[in-house]
């Protein structure tokens, strides 16, 4: 960052702040067009699609229908003639995905908070190295990371070899294709997202508060619970969201580590579009439900942030 020179008058920036005022529209037009045309319009069309009638060969018929949402929420029996009741199949896929994402988020928090704290309390030069080491894996191809994890924890993989060799276990651990493997995969995929925002919050924490608490005979852990955690909470919440949201719609970890039993939302959506028996309106409806869930979470977050700032 450039430090403002002392000779700079506070308002000298204001005029150059508006250098590009007259070019504002042409400068922003590409962004508006690309995001508007290739993201907002497609999402709107997806919303329309979820209310269309499915065609047998994977396309749609332009006729309004609630069939996709009906299929998601309501069970009418195999032949559609039984009294309507709540359909649990898809709700339970969402429930399982939420549980998996929540477990992964908790794991990330348990490992991520102490790591972030440790990094933030190092000397500045050491901090840079640690942050770099934490960020590098995030930029490595996620597919390759997930395949590597699969290779490491598979039945006769290096992890089991090492554990068997050291005599810690007598039988190889059956890790692959379990719920735990999926949680581990999500945890491993998004751990850097937890560490970085917590680090940013702890770095700004005023440690004299901890000293004051220690002077008043609070133990370390009481200080952590009653003083530190409430102050760094925004960082923790941001980290949790950054892990939870991509975990919820994840495709690679459940697909490569979980096997058929550990189906999550991502696979449910993918099946509707990639398989021959796909149902596009239903896939669009499931995507709409997933997106609404995520947007509600983000809105709640924005509101809690606005409230915290107002205080």
């Amino acid at each position: 960052m450039a430090a403002p020179t002392p000779t700079t008058a506070p308002d000298s920036g204001a005029s150059s702040d508006a250098t590009y005022r007259s070019a504002r529209v042409p400068l922003l037009l590409p962004t508006w067009l690309v995001i508007g045309f290739f993201l907002i319009l497609p999402v709107a069309l997806m919303a329309v699609y979820s209310f269309l009638t499915k065609e047998m060969r994977g396309g749609v018929i332009w006729e309004f229908s609630l069939a996709a949402y009906d299929q998601f929420f309501i069970n009418r029996g195999l032949f559609g003639d039984e009294p309507a009741s709540l359909e649990w199949t898809y709700i339970s896929v969402f429930g399982r995905s939420i549980a998996q994402a929540a477990t992964a988020t908790t794991l990330c928090l348990l490992i991520g908070f102490p790591t972030a704290w440790f990094i933030a309390t190092r000397a500045p030069a050491t901090r840079g190295v640690w942050l770099f080491l934490i960020t590098v894996p995030y930029w490595v191809n996620l597919l390759i990371r997930t395949v590597s994890l699969r290779f490491l924890i598979r039945e006769n993989g290096p992890l089991n070899d090492a554990l068997l060799g050291s005599g810690l276990i007598a039988e190889p651990l059956a890790l692959i294709n379990t719920n735990f493997a999926v949680q581990l995969g999500l945890f491993y995929s998004y751990l850097p997202f937890m560490v970085l925002p917590i680090y940013a919050a702890v770095e700004r924490y005023n440690f004299t508060l901890s000293e004051a608490a220690a002077d008043l005979y609070a133990s370390r852990w009481v200080t952590l619970r009653d003083i530190v955690l409430p102050i760094v909470k925004p960082g923790i919440i941001a980290g949790c969201l950054l892990v939870f949201i991509p975990s919820l719609g994840a495709f690679l970890a459940p697909n490569l580590l979980g096997g058929a039993k550990n189906f999550m939302i991502g696979s449910l959506i993918e099946e509707q579009f990639k398989r021959s028996l796909g149902n596009w309106p239903f896939g669009a409806a499931v995507s709409m439900i997933l997106m609404s869930l995520v947007l509600v979470l983000l809105l709640l977050y924005a509101r809690s942030m606005a409230r915290a700032e107002a205080r």
């Binding site: 962004t31 999402v43 991509p246 995507s287 997106m291």
Partner: peptide
Amino acid sequence: LTFALINLPLMVPEIVIAVATLIFFTM
């Protein structure tokens, strides 16, 4: 609003962007 627009690709789940884009190009 423009700032939100720029960051929108980060906020919508990847798989949702994938579905929406496929539907758009097909349509």
